[in-house]
Design a protein around this nucleic acid. Structure first.
Length: 806
RNA sequence: GCGGAUGUGGCGCAACCGGCAGACGCACCGGUCUCAGAAACCGGCAGGUGAGGGUUCGAAUCCCUCCAUCCGCACCA
């Protein structure tokens, strides 16, 4: 018999699909309903190297869903592209010692070859890359809309600065206070930066979680990242200067317990405090890495000599500067309530400040005077003037109301989320299309001058000032508004800007008049199923949601959320640890395809275990699925030589085939489980292998081939052809016949006192009473009944009878 | 410290609504074939679900307490 030769088969069918553009999604006709449209998307790769097993898992999972949806009647859009701008690609280029464009384009070509070898059902006609002018022209165009809407702005702010790489780093490029790449300790610097006003959408980003079907943990990460807390802003007047400084608190009910006032070292007010000693402390503390500040065991601080007036009591309290107060959060100033805040308590202990209890349990022992008391369930205010005796929540409301009537405070909400800093002092990114003009300020380029091309430079390595600044003839330009001399922006955009809208471009990838036509985006969007790593939860996934909401507000888009359903693939481990180059435990997809073929690689990556959990790659494991494919091959060819038909007859094989159809369909469609369908098909093939010429064998083989097609499309297509059919990739998904699923007999489990004592093969049609009678009649059961009285009888129809004896 | 996830044979895992624990695969053992090996085929193989308690006729599954591992967040006022 002919041997299974994966390489020959895979090459053959990949050529057919390429030639036929088999997986191209058609543009909808005007007015076409999007009911059957399905947008399948996986996070796009950085072309900073080759594909690794994580990609193989990600894209194979998407591929199974793509085939399944196509064959169950959907029109599927399943595009692919490259996140080719930004640090990952640029760093790869620096390491390889070439121009980023050359390196990236070489990698894109190599990845494209790898992807085609995997046989993924991708609509290649929609491929986009972030670094191509045809794409970034529209990134720039969208930026200008954000600018017009006031959602993009420039301001001076503290940023992460890597002294070694000479660049600003994104928050996500700082790991434990160090540069992710070189390990240098990150400094805080104040620089003028571009920001997107994502905080404007903080509430919408929280609120709209209820519109999307995402893993709870991902929503939790985003909630945590946004960090909304309700409270109040209270105004404390500085006695000596007469100025008011707001503080944010979530516990306005503890206002009467404020015994001191603290400013963050970076608070703008600190510079105006005249004492050198104070400014020296503030400078030193402000330069300390945030990481170190947080880890410090002892609180540090310095008294300013000034006093703040408690807006409720008019009491004078000392004003301190201390680095446990963060400028980033709230207003950068707090009221110190040591009795009810652990950090304030530690600070008060350190510097001998008073501790005054103002909230106590309504019943039971009052807290010890001068000690910290944690928040308890049932609390009332004590020692709080006119508010004494109120329950804590009412007290908080009453105090805020009382203060706002007097102009000394108001209810307020604070967020941990900060505006998204998106400018980078690096070369390889989308140029920001604005001109600085001494007369006109920041002037946007007119839309018809886009794209603003990224020019070539001699040296694109990071060196502190943006590489584009080293091209004076490019920087010098006329102000688009007044025509006088202007300077171009030399910073470039963070690559997360590129990836915040790529899924929209796929809907209309060749449009040269707009980023996308709204009709086409509205037809496909939202993405029905998105698959990617959870590490992007607080970054890419949040930014993309922000972009879609803003674009919706601009009237460019009908949807409010980009990704309806989200799935995170797990990590692929090898030798007990996550595969990584630094550990040297990488299994290369190319080597696996070389040794076993793409079908085996695809099948095994999903067979290893639940796709959303960490799984362990073993070399013998993939041998196992290779063996299965050879068996499928052999058994199917043998069955193909047998008689056709018989698929309606209730032979055991035909029944088993229908059961397998039901199981696989349910696992993929409802349970979103990808390993168990493979096991089910293996079971079917095992049964078929016992006698490949048995009645119904040919139908069983056809069913197995059809069901395995989303996983192993090449061998499935080849066998389908040899079974006398064609174009399995377009064939309807099999449907289980309920009549053939119904069994005539079943195995009844008989328990006595919950322990299995016998198994009886009985007709399905028996009544509950008949089942009990049959159970009692069993000699083995009788041995355990031993003449004792039956106290209770439990019947689970179709499964078991449990006899409880005394 | 807070939050989330996960603990089932030697290994990866399955058991969907509380009803036969161990499907499927790996490894291992035996056999067929072979000069031999590989491949293939046939057959075999374990242990009771991290620990303890509770609910129930019946618990891997529900509840409580604890342990371990992993992943987030962590001076956020």
């Amino acid at each position: 018999m002919e041997q299974y030769d994966p390489h020959r088969i895979e090459r053959k069918w990949q050529q057919v699909w390429e030639r036929e553009r088999a997986f191209a999604a058609p543009d909808p006709a005007p007015g076409e309903e999007s009911g059957n449209a399905f947008y399948m998307l996986e996070m796009l790769p950085y072309p900073s190297g080759e594909l690794h097993m994580g990609h193989v898992l990600n894209y194979t999972l998407g591929d199974v869903l793509t085939h399944f949806r196509r064959r169950t009647g959907c029109t599927v859009l399943r595009p692919m592209g490259y996140d080719s701008f930004g640090l990952p690609a640029e760093n790869a280029a620096i390491k390889a010692g070439g121009h980023p464009r050359e390196i990236v384009e070489r990698n894109i070509a190599a990845i494209g070859v790898q992807m085609r070898r995997m046989g993924w059902a991708i609509d290649w006609s929609r491929e986009v890359s972030a670094h191509e002018p045809e794409y970034y022209r529209w990134t720039q165009w969208l930026f200008l809309r954000f600018l017009e809407a006031g959602l993009a702005y420039r301001k001076e702010a503290p940023v992460n600065w890597c002294p070694n790489d000479q660049t600003v780093l994104a928050n996500e490029q700082v790991v434990d206070g160090r540069c992710e790449r070189c390990g240098a300790e990150v400094e805080s610097r104040r620089l003028a930066q571009w920001f997107f006003r994502i905080t404007e959408y903080a509430d919408a980003l929280l609120e709209d979680h209820k519109l999307i079907d995402w893993p709870e943990r991902t929503k939790a990460i985003q909630r945590n990242w946004i960090g909304r807390s309700e409270g109040a802003e209270l105004l404390f007047r500085i006695e000596e200067l007469g100025e008011e400084i707001p503080v944010f608190t979530t516990r306005p009910d503890t206002l009467f317990g404020a015994t001191f006032f603290v400013l963050a070292p970076e608070h703008p007010f600190v510079d105006r405090v005249t004492s050198d000693q104070v400014r020296k402390y503030a400078r030193r503390a402000g330069a300390r890495p945030a990481e170190e500040r947080a880890a410090a065991e002892q609180k540090t601080g310095v008294f300013t000599g000034l006093h703040a007036i408690n807006p409720a009591t008019d009491e004078r309290i000392p004003v301190w500067v201390a680095d446990y107060v963060l400028m980033d959060y709230g207003t950068g100033a707090i009221m110190g309530v040591p009795a009810h805040d652990e950090r304030d308590y530690a600070f008060a202990q350190e510097f001998g400040l008073a501790v005054r209890t103002v909230v106590a349990p309504a019943r039971g022992e009052p807290p010890e005077a001068g000690a910290f008391s944690a928040h308890t369930e049932d609390e009332v205010l004590v020692d709080s003037g006119p508010f004494t005796g109120l329950r804590a929540p009412e007290g908080a409301r009453a105090i805020v109301e009382w203060l706002s009537e007097r102009g000394r405070g108001r209810a307020a909400v604070s967020y941990r989320l900060r505006d998204w800093s998106f400018s980078r002092q690096r070369y390889w990114g989308c140029p920001i299309p604005v001109v600085y003009c001494d007369a006109c300020g920041i002037v946007p380029l007119p839309d018809d001058e886009l794209p603003l091309l990224l020019p070539d430079v001699h040296n694109y390595r990071p060196k502190g000032e943006p590489p584009l600044a080293s091209k004076p003839d490019w920087v010098r330009t006329a102000c688009p508004r007044c025509g006088d001399a202007g300077r171009r922006e030399t910073e470039t955009m963070d690559t997360f800007v590129d990836s915040s809208w790529y899924f929209l471009r796929y809907c209309d990838p060749h449009n040269d008049e707009a980023p996308f036509e709204r009709r086409l985006a509205d037809f496909w969007m939202p993405v029905d199923q998105y698959v990617g790593g959870i590490e992007h939860a607080p970054v890419h996934l949040l930014y993309s949601r922000f972009f879609v909401k803003a674009l919706n507000d601009f009237g460019l888009l009908g949807v409010r959320e980009p990704f309806q359903r989200l799935f995170h693939q797990g990590s692929v481990n090898y030798g007990g640890a996550r595969m990584s180059k630094s550990r040297g435990n990488v299994v290369s997809p190319d080597a696996v395809v070389e040794a076993h073929g793409a079908d085996a690689a695809r099948l095994y990556i999903l067979f290893m275990g639940p796709a959303d959990q960490a799984m362990e790659w073993t070399d013998t494991g993939i041998d196992g699925v290779s063996r299965f494919l050879r068996k499928l091959w052999r058994v199917t060819l043998e069955a193909a030589a047998g008689p056709a038909g018989g698929d309606r007859s209730a032979t055991p094989l035909v029944r088993k085939a229908h059961e397998t159809v039901a199981k696989v369909t349910d696992d993929i469609a409802r349970r979103f489980q990808f390993n168990t369908p493979i096991a089910a098909v293996m079971e079917l093939v095992n049964e078929l292998a016992r006698d490949p010429r048995a009645p119904g064998a040919r139908f069983a083989a056809e069913t197995a081939v059809s069901l395995v097609q989303p996983y192993a499309p090449h061998v499935a297509e080849e066998l389908w052809e040899r079974l006398g059919h064609e174009r399995l990739w377009e064939a309807p998904w099999p449907v289980a016949d309920p009549e053939l699923l119904a069994r005539e007999t079943f195995e009844l489990v008989v328990q006595v006192n919950g322990k299995v004592r016998d198994r009886l093969e009985l007709p399905t049609a028996l009544s509950e009473e008949e089942l009990v009678e049959a159970a009692k009649a069993s000699p083995r059961v009788q041995a355990f009944l031993d003449g004792k009285a039956i106290r209770q009888t439990v019947v689970v129809p179709g499964r078991l009878v449990n006899l409880v004896v005394g």
